[in-house]
Nucleic acid binder design. Structure first.
Lengths: 205, 205
DNA sequence: CTGCAAAATTTCAATCCATGCAAATAGTCA
DNA sequence: TGACTATTTGCATGGATTGAAATTTTGCAG
């Protein structure tokens, strides 16, 4: 029994998984998402079409192969918080952490970081999936935030806080997609949206 | 040429559309969403399967048949605003207006208002679609809000405001779905989340 | 090294959503 | 009525997804 899962079997599975991701993202980039079939992806990764589904539940999922790790990182920020850190400060750090999804990949080098982002924004199916995952992650974060500050934040306050900050950042980034040319500008927009929300919308205008 | 579209042709189309919606929602309730096929819906509405797609673009869309009207109502709140009304006040009213989606149907009586809500929350495909529409509507609202207060709110502020309020309300309602038994409790939760966001998250905790 | 058991892959078939196209129908209007 | 246009329909097709059974690969004990 391999405890760390480093046997040949496990290594092979990782290789196949990686091959599927690389093949899929390359083909999506070359031919477009809708135009690429699962059969083509599987063929490019040298497995049968059926095998694709033992690695990913759907065609969309392969694009978000690293989302689980991302989520854990965000929750880890909560676990590592300083004793005197306020909820607002922690939220700031979580937003920063989460924004790295835009610019970094987990273990692949061949991809332009902005490529996946553009793909997700262009394809309705991927957009919907992304919104879904974002929502689920927010729900988890809200629970974790309440658990981290059980005396300071009730469940509704925690949910409102997480939802507000991420809602603001999401909408601000995406409505400024046209204006913000570079990733750096997007970061600036996101930070500003977060600060506006933390300060309170009543003070606007 | 019938200008108001009150000819037989138009009336028939409305009847077919309504029949499709009623058949679909009834079947979804009786057998479940995934278990209901388009063929069954079409048969129950006495049209061919192919015809379904000249009324709705997808199986999911039939559930959100009234979303366009809802959106227009929300934007109308902006148009009807008082000269001295602050952005925060308008946002409050828009949230109130939007929450009615939870409790009201446009023209159908056979449905329990909570039925569709539960359906959407249970089915991942519908949830994703709902999040997508919610997002698109927020983007439109943000643009409209900026247009309504061009001097007070720049595009990022408008987007942050709309995203924050709706993000907070959405997450607060959905994470409290288990706790809030009645629609009234959900309303209360939503209002509280909106107020928290308007006051600013820094004051939390 | 050999064979067994578990895990993974493949093959094959089936279902369903969705779409394009051309034929058939039905409503509109002079 | 008869031409004209909007709708509906039937048919064929492509592609995602899933289940079951057959086959191969891996891990491991003897």
């Amino acid at each position: 029994m391999e405890s760390g899962g480093v046997g040949l079997r496990e290594r092979k599975k990782q290789r196949t998984r990686r091959a599927l991701v690389e093949a899929a993202l390359r083909l999506f980039d070359e031919k477009g998402y809708e135009e690429t079939t699962l059969a083509e992806i599987a063929a490019a990764a040298d497995v049968s079409t059926r095998t694709f589904f033992s690695y990913f539940a759907s065609k969309e999922d392969v694009v978000f192969y690293d989302s689980k790790g991302r989520m854990e990182q965000a929750v880890a920020v909560l676990a590592d918080r300083q004793p005197d850190e306020s909820p607002a400060d922690v939220l700031r750090r979580i937003v920063d952490e989460s924004l790295e999804w835009l610019t970094t990949y987990e273990e692949f080098t061949f991809e332009d970081a902005g490529l996946r982002l553009r793909l997700v924004l262009k394809e309705p199916a991927l957009q919907a999936r992304a919104l879904m995952m974002l929502f689920e992650n927010q729900a988890r974060l809200a629970r974790a935030l309440h658990a981290a500050y059980p005396d300071k934040l009730d469940p509704v306050e925690a949910a409102a806080a997480v939802g507000a900050v991420f809602g603001a950042v999401k909408l601000a980034i995406l409505t400024n997609m046209d204006t913000d040319r570079s990733i750096e500008e997007m970061w600036a927009t996101a930070r500003r949206a977060a600060e506006i929300t933390l300060s309170g919308l009543c003070s606007l205008g």
